[in-house]
Nucleic acid binder design. Structure first.
Lengths: 163, 163
DNA sequence: AGGCTATAGGACCATTTTAGTGCTATTTCC
DNA sequence: GGAAATAGCACTAAAATGGTCCTATAGCCT
């Protein structure tokens, strides 16, 4: 769990494709072929990304999509926000007013803190890094060592496939 | 998004209740009353937690549940693992063998890194901290400042309610 | 021994969320 | 005006989630 949706994963692949040639305008169908993702899905995702301001679109003949700003200025958090709304570990936040133990519940405070920790990590990673274009500066230094030690217990989780 | 399920949230509340009196054995129904969570749900969750080794159970008359080990030695990651399986940002990990762009996909590497960053945060927080019993040492120092600056843009997300 | 009280482990169903498709309107170039 | 593209919905199918119930088993007490 704590997974991102498949659509968000697709969106990342699409954005990464756009990031490789930022000034080149491409159509949704062209991107579908390039990424091997179903055309209607690509189209739908691009519309969402446009609304969120991550990609710019031109309509009409010879229209298409391109990144709205440099890949270095698009964070992973922005991508998640665009497709899934803001990160919130617990549902409680969208409250329906029926929490009985609200007053005595001390659990929330630290969930909130974790929430921010995760969000911070997502802010620090750019699309350029996700796409592998900015290899010089992946700013999660404290994790370099962790990656080796934790590889065994995380198992195949981190090995992503995109379809 | 990136939320934990409601059941995991419940589980945390239940565990927090157990953490307050670690040596006191309580029944599922007693915990249900205490936490105001529906009894069958509490029972179901406790069974899962028992299987995961987070709580110890005694059967028969005067049976019930208690923490299997001190609250300081139960991490948030362990709780999530128990209820939702290991954290994996992308579905790809549970592969069905139909990823077309596997070879050329450079996106995965950084998702993996983010995955570990998140996991690390979850490892560093114990049940004792979640329950507010161990206020002395909440080990996410770099976030203290972030919490203030980010409070505005995160909105009500972090304000949890438990029902 | 027998009954009461508790957990163990399923099977099961309703609801919600997610994924994916399709249709119509609009914009722009030729 | 027509062709090619995006914009914005509405809709359906499938999967995950949340929640309930039933039967089996273990332990204590009379």
């Amino acid at each position: 769990m704590l997974r991102i949706s498949k659509l968000t994963d697709y969106a990342t692949v699409i954005l990464a494709a756009l990031a490789e040639q930022p000034e080149h305008v491409r159509t949704a169908t062209a991107l579908a072929e390039e990424t091997r993702i179903a055309a209607p899905t690509v189209s739908k995702l691009l519309k969402q990304l446009q609304r969120a301001g991550l990609v710019a679109s031109t309509r009409g003949l010879h229209g298409g999509y391109q990144l709205a700003r440099p890949a270095t200025q698009i964070s992973a958090a922005a991508i998640l926000d665009a497709l899934e709304g803001p990160v919130a570990l617990t549902d409680c936040s969208v409250g329906h007013g029926n929490c009985d133990i609200e007053g005595t519940c001390r659990v929330s405070r630290v969930w909130q803190r974790l929430n921010l920790a995760i969000r911070r990590s997502l802010y620090e990673v750019s699309l350029a890094q996700l796409a592998g274009l900015d290899t010089t500066q992946v700013r999660l230094p404290e994790l370099e060592r962790e990656m080796q030690t934790a590889a065994t217990r995380v198992g195949p989780s981190g090995v992503n496939r995109h379809e």
